[in-house]
């Protein structure tokens, strides 16, 4: 029982945190919440499944294909989402572009991945035995990779000149560009990084649980909740939000009943947005901003 809860907690926390991070990266450079971000999660997991399980190739091939393809998918999303947004001048056009990409991806995945459940092979099979129950190595790998990605991104943002440019471009793109920073390239780059992170989440996360080809939006929403709870626009908020929400969900659904977790999270989300819109971390500026 405890091991089950632990596995569930790590799975929900890590995937939500990674999705929240990739949503945050895109949001910071464009003020767009990309509803189709979860589709890259599915892309990562579907490719790993197709190459590793169906075609029976080893995980290095998986990595060699999945990593560049998810990054490129991010770049493609940037084009598909941002061109209509810039052209229409409508502040709500992103909703329709991101949702339509979700629709397209869902049907493409349904066609491409004929298996109802995508479950790539774990990087490392087996696990620790605790009280006769197994704690898979894979879930620990997922946790470790999540933490490494967050720390790497934090270091990148705060310790490198490049990162300083990224942060500056998010607050004042015009002034930032006058110091030689190619702001438009940064937007494309942020979509790529976001795609990569979501893709890795899909690949490593879904070996620990069953994922359906049409589950993309579910993961987007999970990441979205974590992002809001942690604080819109904050990297650290994405991590903390992911873990707080993931842990609560896992514990409530295992102790009381499966539905209560979701209900509780929906309630938390409304309460945070209404009473503390800056989230737990409070990095986002004021309400009404953006």
């Amino acid at each position: 029982m405890i091991v089950d809860v632990l596995v569930m907690t790590i799975f929900l926390s890590s995937t939500s945190a990674l999705m929240a991070l990739s949503l945050t990266i895109v949001y910071n450079s464009t003020r767009v919440i990309n509803f189709s971000q979860g589709e890259i999660f599915i892309l990562g997991c579907g490719m790993a499944y197709q190459i590793g399980v169906v075609m029976k190739l080893n995980m290095f091939v998986v990595a060699a294909v999945a990593i560049p393809v998810t990054a490129l998918a991010g770049l493609l999303l940037e084009r598909l989402i941002m061109i209509p947004v810039r052209r229409s001048g409508s502040p709500v056009a992103w909703i329709i572009t991101t949702l339509s990409i979700t629709l397209i991806s869902q049907s493409l995945f349904a066609l491409a991945f004929t298996s109802a459940q995508l479950r790539p092979d774990p990087l490392l099979a087996g696990g620790f035995k605790i009280n006769g129950q197994e704690l898979p190595y894979q879930i620990l790998i997922l946790l470790a990779v999540t933490l490494v990605i967050f720390f790497a991104y934090e270091i990148f943002l705060n310790k490198t000149t490049f990162g300083i440019g990224v942060r500056a471009a998010a607050t004042d793109p015009e002034t930032t560009s006058t110091f030689g920073v190619p702001v438009k390239l940064f937007v494309a780059g942020s979509f790529m990084a976001a795609g990569l992170i979501a893709g890795i989440g899909g690949w490593l996360g879904s070996s620990a649980a069953f994922v359906l080809p049409t589950d993309g939006l579910r993961f987007t929403v999970a990441g979205f909740v974590a992002m809001i709870v942690g604080g819109l626009g904050s990297t650290r908020g994405a991590l903390i939000g992911g873990f707080v929400v993931g842990a609560m969900d896992a514990i409530l659904r295992n102790t009381i009943n499966p539905g209560i977790g979701e209900l509780f999270i929906a309630a938390i989300l409304v309460i945070i947005l209404v009473f503390r819109p800056q989230g737990i971390i409070g990095a986002a500026r004021t309400r009404g901003d953006a």
Binding site: I164, G165, A168, T171, E174, S177, T178, F179, P182
Partner: peptide, 30 residues
């Protein structure tokens, strides 16, 4: 603007436009 900056022109903008949440050193590194 980024190409023009690379060409050797720099601008001190109206209203200074200092990045408030970044340190002096970080502003300079930018």
């Amino acid at each position: 603007p980024n190409q023009i900056a690379a060409g050797g022109i720099a601008l001190v903008p109206e209203g200074r436009k200092i990045f408030q949440d970044q340190t002096v050193q970080e502003n300079l590194l930018l």
